Simulated assay, not measured.
Amino acid sequence: MYWFVLVLSGALEAVWANALERSHGFTRPWPVVVFVIGLAGSMGGLAYALRGLPVGSAYAVWVGIGAVLTAGYAMASGAEPVSLVRVLLLAGIVACVVGLRLTS
């Protein structure tokens, strides 16, 4: 259950990161609302997962999931360029996250 919550909270990290960008410095109300809800859910999920997982592995997995989803969304939406090197590097992060899960 802890790993499932950790993965969900990592996905919420990507939600709040993208909402933060769309808020344009907290000047747009709806992205700010999404940011606050996403941040609270993400941090709450991480806090819950830390009840049963080691902090080093859990934090690395949480950040990795958030980073990959945030960068993937930016590439899919056209905000950032897509290249083979970028995709391979993101795949490397995914492989590291899986490796941490398998060794914890």
Rank of each mutant, 00 (worst) to 15 (best):
A17W: 03
W30T: 13
S83L: 03
L39E: 11
A95S: 11
R101Y: 11
A19L: 05
Y59T: 04
V85M: 15
S57H: 14
L88I: 14
A79Q: 13
F4Y: 14
L89F: 13
E80Q: 14
F4I: 15
L8T: 10
L20W: 12
S23R: 08
V5S: 07
F4Q: 11
P31I: 03
T27G: 02
A74T: 07
C96R: 01
G99L: 06
Y73M: 12
V33W: 01
G44V: 04
E13C: 11
G41Y: 02
A95V: 12
E21H: 14
W16K: 10
A19V: 08
L39R: 04
A49S: 13
M43D: 08
V85T: 15
A17S: 11
S42R: 08
A14D: 08
H24C: 09
F35V: 08
V97Y: 02
G52I: 09
A17Q: 04
V33E: 00
M75K: 05
M1P: 07
V82L: 15
G66K: 03
L46I: 09
V87C: 12
G92C: 06
G45Q: 06
F26R: 02
L50Q: 05
V82S: 15
F26M: 11
Y59A: 09
F4H: 10
V34A: 12
P54Y: 09
V82R: 15
T70F: 03
L53E: 07
E80A: 13
G64I: 03
N18T: 10
Y2K: 13
L90C: 07
E21I: 15
R101K: 13
A47Y: 06
M1A: 12
F26P: 00
L100I: 11
L20V: 05
L84T: 14
A17C: 09
A19H: 02
H24G: 05
W62S: 02
R22Y: 08
L88F: 12
S77H: 08
G92D: 01
W30L: 15
V94S: 02
G10Y: 08
F26A: 13
A95L: 13
L20M: 15
G10I: 07
Y59D: 10
G78L: 04
S77W: 10
S77P: 03
S42W: 01
L53M: 11
V87Q: 11
M43E: 01
L6P: 00
V34W: 04
A47D: 07
I65T: 00
V61P: 07
L102C: 05
W3Y: 14
L88K: 09
F4M: 15
V33D: 03
F35A: 10
S23C: 01
G56M: 09
S23N: 00
I93V: 15
